[in-house]
Simulated scan of single mutants.
Amino acid sequence: MGDSRPVYQRIADDLRRQIDEGVLAVGDRIPSRSELKRTYAASDQTVDRAVRVLKAAGYAEGQFGRGVFVTDRRPLGSLLRTSDTADSPFAARISTGAATTSLLWEATSATTTAPPRIAERLGIAAGDRVMCTRYEYLADRRPLQLATSWEPLALTEGTEVVFPERGPYARRGVRERFAAIGVRVVGATELVGSRPATTAESEALGCSPGQCVTVVERTHHAADGRAVETSDIVVRADRWRLEYRIAFAD
């Protein structure tokens, strides 16, 4: 039987194979549109679609006025996930081999209303007021992760912890902040998935629109079962691994 794959997919798969086998090395230029058309007897639209597939998969990136080049897909490191890092939007440290690098981040907070999916995770009504905090993380000046956190204002409004990154409990983490207002946080639930990056996410993380990102939905719970905080965390799936360290009780 013949190859039933669409022509654009066959071209993309062949280019991926050449990259994986080192025929096309990191930094090499992907053959031009005219070269690909001639090699694969394909149309402009077909080879353009094949190159878009490569870009979306993180194998290549365009450089304005120069062409499309093979990207470095080796993981930059591991995002550590342990009980010691549970209070940060995702991980307090980055493991990059022998060295461990501290994260730097910027955050902005604003009062808004909870959209339905966030309201469901927090156990509140859609439209209830929440504090929304958006984070951007850097490691060694490289974009690492994005995070958006929501906390019900019914719990924090009028207290010293209403702004997660301001006041006497700034950057103390969810557990310590809520403990300051008499709420004991006992655990967190995380759901890990993947999806294509949005245009805004790709611009912030330095990848192509549509490229695969790892998405973590994390929700902190109080001792009485209430959800006190929920976050969406986004990282580039091709550059960062998730490292979970699980301790077993004796």
Rank of each mutant, 00 (worst) to 15 (best):
residue 180 A to G: 10
residue 201 E to S: 04
residue 208 S to K: 01
residue 151 E to N: 07
residue 135 Y to Q: 12
residue 230 T to E: 01
residue 104 L to A: 12
residue 190 E to D: 15
residue 13 D to C: 03
residue 163 F to E: 15
residue 25 A to D: 11
residue 161 V to L: 10
residue 100 T to H: 09
residue 94 I to A: 12
residue 161 V to E: 05
residue 207 C to P: 00
residue 103 L to N: 14
residue 98 A to K: 08
residue 145 Q to A: 15
residue 17 R to W: 02
residue 128 D to T: 08
residue 202 S to K: 12
residue 123 G to N: 10
residue 107 A to E: 15
residue 93 R to P: 00
residue 249 A to Q: 14
residue 127 G to K: 07
residue 232 D to C: 10
residue 55 K to M: 11
residue 148 T to Y: 08
residue 94 I to T: 04
residue 28 D to S: 11
residue 108 T to M: 10
residue 9 Q to R: 15
residue 134 R to N: 07
residue 163 F to I: 04
residue 153 L to S: 04
residue 97 G to S: 07
residue 121 R to A: 13
residue 111 T to N: 06
residue 46 T to D: 11
residue 141 R to K: 14
residue 185 V to R: 12
residue 89 P to M: 12
residue 84 D to M: 07
residue 156 T to Q: 03
residue 13 D to F: 01
residue 101 T to K: 11
residue 73 R to T: 08
residue 69 F to I: 09
residue 190 E to I: 12
residue 227 A to P: 00
residue 196 P to V: 04
residue 18 Q to Y: 00
residue 71 T to M: 10
residue 39 T to R: 15
residue 64 F to S: 13
residue 171 R to L: 06
residue 9 Q to G: 01
residue 234 V to P: 00
residue 105 W to L: 06
residue 228 V to I: 08
residue 231 S to N: 07
residue 41 A to S: 06
residue 163 F to Q: 14
residue 149 S to I: 03
residue 164 P to N: 10
residue 212 C to G: 01
residue 2 G to W: 06
residue 107 A to Y: 07
residue 89 P to C: 09
residue 45 Q to S: 07
residue 151 E to W: 02
residue 124 I to D: 03
residue 126 A to E: 14
residue 147 A to K: 09
residue 74 R to Y: 04
residue 86 A to L: 12
residue 76 L to Y: 08
residue 121 R to Y: 04
residue 87 D to N: 13
residue 160 E to Q: 13
residue 110 A to W: 12
residue 238 D to I: 05
residue 134 R to V: 13
residue 108 T to V: 13
residue 23 V to L: 13
residue 230 T to Q: 02
residue 208 S to V: 09
residue 167 G to P: 01
residue 71 T to C: 04
residue 89 P to V: 13
residue 125 A to P: 00
residue 200 A to Y: 10
residue 201 E to P: 00
residue 184 R to N: 12
residue 77 G to C: 06
residue 114 A to N: 08
residue 195 R to E: 12
residue 220 H to E: 06
residue 78 S to K: 13
residue 99 A to R: 14
residue 244 Y to M: 04
residue 22 G to Y: 01
residue 111 T to I: 07
residue 24 L to Q: 05
residue 27 G to Y: 15
residue 154 A to G: 14
residue 82 T to F: 03
residue 234 V to N: 04
residue 162 V to H: 09
residue 176 E to S: 09
residue 158 G to L: 05
residue 201 E to Y: 08
residue 28 D to M: 07
residue 143 P to F: 04
residue 200 A to H: 03
residue 8 Y to P: 00
residue 155 L to D: 09
residue 63 Q to F: 02
residue 126 A to Q: 14
residue 160 E to K: 14
residue 147 A to I: 02
residue 138 L to M: 14
residue 116 P to N: 06
residue 234 V to W: 00
residue 223 A to V: 13
residue 159 T to R: 06
residue 115 P to L: 10
residue 31 P to S: 08
residue 71 T to E: 08
residue 225 G to V: 15
residue 8 Y to F: 14
residue 136 E to F: 04
residue 201 E to N: 03
residue 173 G to Q: 09
residue 163 F to N: 15
residue 141 R to N: 11
residue 18 Q to T: 01
